[in-house]
């Protein structure tokens, strides 16, 4: 047993974690950008309520979120039952559910970062693009979105890191099934519960640190590239 050799279980947990987090971020990014846009640009009654709801996962215990997801999206849940019956989509106790739990928990962080960058975009530039003949949708994709890139990078990295670390909501919603829903933190927790698990736990711990650092380095490189492009 060495510190540098992963067992099959640990390798499966690592792959699953990257897969689940990747999907969680990819699937929630468009919704996150939309939510950020709605909160930053529109004025409507109930906006504060929506803002609060989006921030709930940040303040509620993750277990509560997991339980709510289970109640609503489980096979017998209101939404989960319908999904199963009409679309044949089952979220409970598989990787899709894990990705959803991670996405929900990471969503506020994503929206906050994206919204901040959107609020920094000079609306005068959008007006200028309109006078040049671009409709609102084109302005969004050719002016607003490109200028939001730094915030989107930050949001994606934050959300990815949060997803990788997701524990409470995941274990409550989709349980801890090896190869199905046992992500890195869950595997680590499991290893700490069994005799002779310390080495494995340590390996997963180091792995988590490495992934987190790699993500940070990636975001830094991307942000620098963007800044260089704007300077060029």
């Amino acid at each position: 047993m060495t510190l540098f050799h992963l067992t099959a279980v640990e390798l499966a947990a690592l792959k699953l974690s990257l897969w689940v987090s990747g999907w969680a971020v990819a699937a929630s990014l468009p919704a996150g950008i939309l939510a950020a846009w709605v909160l930053a640009r529109l004025r409507f009654p109930g906006k504060n309520l929506l803002d609060g709801m989006l921030h709930l996962p940040l303040v509620l215990p993750p277990v509560v979120i997991g339980y709510l997801l289970l109640v609503m999206l489980g096979r017998n849940g209101i939404i989960g039952g319908a999904l199963d019956r009409y679309l044949g989509v089952v979220l409970a106790f598989n990787w899709k559910g894990a990705a959803l739990a991670a996405a929900v928990m990471a969503f506020p962080l994503l929206v906050r970062a994206v919204r901040l960058s959107l609020e920094g975009v000079d609306q005068g530039l959008e007006d200028a693009a309109r006078t040049l003949g671009a409709g609102p949708l084109r302005v969004f994709f050719t002016v607003t979105l490109p200028l939001m890139v730094p915030g989107i990078i930050t949001g994606v990295i934050l959300a990815f890191a949060r997803s990788l670390g997701e524990f409470g909501a995941t274990i409550t919603f989709v349980s801890n099934i090896r190869g199905q829903t046992q992500t890195l933190p869950l595997a680590l927790y499991t290893l700490t519960q069994v005799p002779d698990g310390e080495a494995g736990a340590m390996r997963l711990c180091i792995l988590s640190v490495l992934i987190a650092m790699a993500a940070l380095v990636c975001s830094e490189i991307l942000a620098r590239r963007f800044a260089a492009r704007m300077e060029g």
């Binding site: 005068g124 007006d127 200028a128 693009a129 006078t131 704007m230």
Partner: peptide, 13 residues
């Protein structure tokens, strides 16, 4: 209608 703004408003990206 072409519009030249006081501050230019060129698209920085």
């Amino acid at each position: 209608i072409g519009y030249v703004f006081q501050e230019g408003r060129l698209l920085p990206h």
